[in-house]
Amino acid sequence: MTRLPHALSMACLLVACLLAPGPAAAAAAALPDDSIYRLEDRFSDQAGQSFTLADRRGKPQLVAMFYTSCRYICPLIVDSAKGVEHRLTPEERARLGILLVSLDPARDDTAALASVAAKRKLDPARWTLARTEAAGVRRVAALLGIRYRALADGEFNHSSVLVLLDAQGRVLARTEKLGTVPDPAFLAAVKAALAAPPGG
């Protein structure tokens, strides 16, 4: 019993440390060694807002790569993420972020991203469509285990993957089984991540 107040005070101290304002470098240092949020590239979203992956800490994320002019598989990637979303409770949904990174930074500017977000009715509270420079695209793809190649006609040949990250940017699960009906094992991993205490 005497240990409880101690544990509590330690927990409070920990929370205080986490909440204490500090330089960006200190925040980055606190990321786990195996977090893809270690990536320092800058991204910008469908509203033109700049961010780094580390800014997405705190919520589990569903991440995929796509490009706006893609006619075949990419709409299915959006459908697949929506499929996962539809199987969640409103509370679970509110605890999940969804990030789609463009493979085609040359053509996918802010307007192109915003247009897809509007056309597909993607709620900006949960969905982020993002672009970064070409070298950063290759780095994100490498971290997510996504392979792609630009084709002569402007399309891309790419592996289609949904990746689940924990609140610290560590890869928890991935699936290449796409469709409006989610891969059951992947959906279970998403639900488990959303049940975990926030920040864990």
């Binding site: 893609c70 598989i73 990419c74 399309e155 891309f156 040949n157 592996s159 289609s160 290449e176």
Partner: peptide, 10 residues
């Protein structure tokens, strides 16, 4: 599942 890996003519 393998069939879905790549999008486009590659």
């Amino acid at each position: 599942p393998d069939a879905m890996r790549f999008c486009g003519a590659g």
